[in-house]
Amino acid sequence: MFEDDQKRLLGEFVRAHRERLAPDQPAGRRRTPGLRREELAARAGISATWCAWIEQARDVQASPHALGRLAKALQLTRAERAYMFDLAGRRDPDAAAHADAEDAPSSLRAMVTAIDHPAYGLDRFWNACAWNASAEDLFIGWLGTGHQRNLLRYIFLDPASRVLIPDWEDRARRVLAEFRADYSHSLHDPEMNTLLTTLRQQSPFFAKAWSEQIVLDREGGLRVFSHPARGALSYEQHTFRPSDRPDHKLVILIPAP
Score class of each variant (00 low, 15 high):
Ala41Lys: 04
Pro190Phe: 02
Phe206Arg: 09
Phe205Thr: 15
Gly141Gln: 12
Ala209Asn: 08
Ala22Phe: 06
Ala128Cys: 12
Ala41Trp: 04
Val251Lys: 01
Thr198Ala: 09
Leu35Cys: 03
Gly11Arg: 09
Gly144Asn: 14
Ser184Ile: 00
Ala57Leu: 03
Val175Pro: 02
Ala42His: 05
Gln201Arg: 14
Asp247Asn: 07
Ser106Lys: 10
Leu157Arg: 03
Pro26Met: 05
Arg124Leu: 08
Ala57Trp: 03
Gly121Tyr: 12
Gln213Arg: 12
Ser234Ala: 08
Leu152Gln: 08
Arg58Asn: 03
Arg30Asn: 04
Ala82Glu: 05
Gly121Leu: 11
Leu74Phe: 10
Arg173Ser: 13
Asp86Pro: 02
Ala82Arg: 14
Pro255Leu: 08
Asp5Asn: 00
Ser106His: 06
Val112Ile: 13
Pro64Gln: 06
Lys7Val: 01
Thr145Val: 13
Pro64Gly: 05
Pro246Arg: 13
Arg8Ala: 07
Gln25Tyr: 07
Arg218Leu: 13
Pro166Gly: 11
Ala57Ser: 11
Leu152Gly: 07
Arg153Trp: 11
Ala207Lys: 15
Ile165Tyr: 07
Asn127Lys: 06
Gly231Ser: 03
Glu219Trp: 10
Gly121Ser: 10
Glu178Ser: 04
Pro23Ile: 10
Asn132Phe: 11
Ala41Gly: 03
Arg81Thr: 10
Asn193Ser: 08
Glu191Tyr: 01
Thr239Pro: 05
Glu102Trp: 08
Ala207Gly: 13
Arg162Ile: 12
Glu80Asn: 07
Gly221Thr: 11
Thr32Leu: 01
Ala95Ile: 07
Asp217Gly: 15
Asp4Ala: 02
Gln61Leu: 04
His188Val: 00
Thr113His: 15
Ala44Val: 00
Ala256Lys: 13
Leu195Ser: 09
Gly121Lys: 10
Tyr120Val: 10
Ala42Asp: 02
Arg8Met: 08
Tyr83Arg: 14
Lys208His: 15
Gln75Thr: 07
Arg78Trp: 06
Leu233Trp: 02
Glu55Leu: 04
Ala135Arg: 13
Trp142Met: 15
Met192Ile: 02
Leu138Ile: 13
Met192Ala: 09
Phe205Asn: 08
Ser186His: 09
Gly11His: 07
Tyr83Ala: 11
Ser63Met: 06
Thr239Trp: 02
Arg90Ile: 11
Leu176Tyr: 00
Pro23Asp: 01
Ala66Ile: 04
Pro159Glu: 09
Phe85Gly: 02
Cys51Ile: 10
Pro33Leu: 00
Pro166Met: 10
Phe240Tyr: 15
Trp53Val: 02
Arg31Asp: 00
His17Val: 05
Arg43Phe: 01
Asn193Asp: 07
Gln56Ala: 07
Glu236Pro: 04
Tyr183Met: 04
Arg15Lys: 15
Thr145Gln: 14
Gln56Asp: 02
Leu74Ser: 06
Ser63Ala: 06
Lys249Pro: 00
Ala172Arg: 08
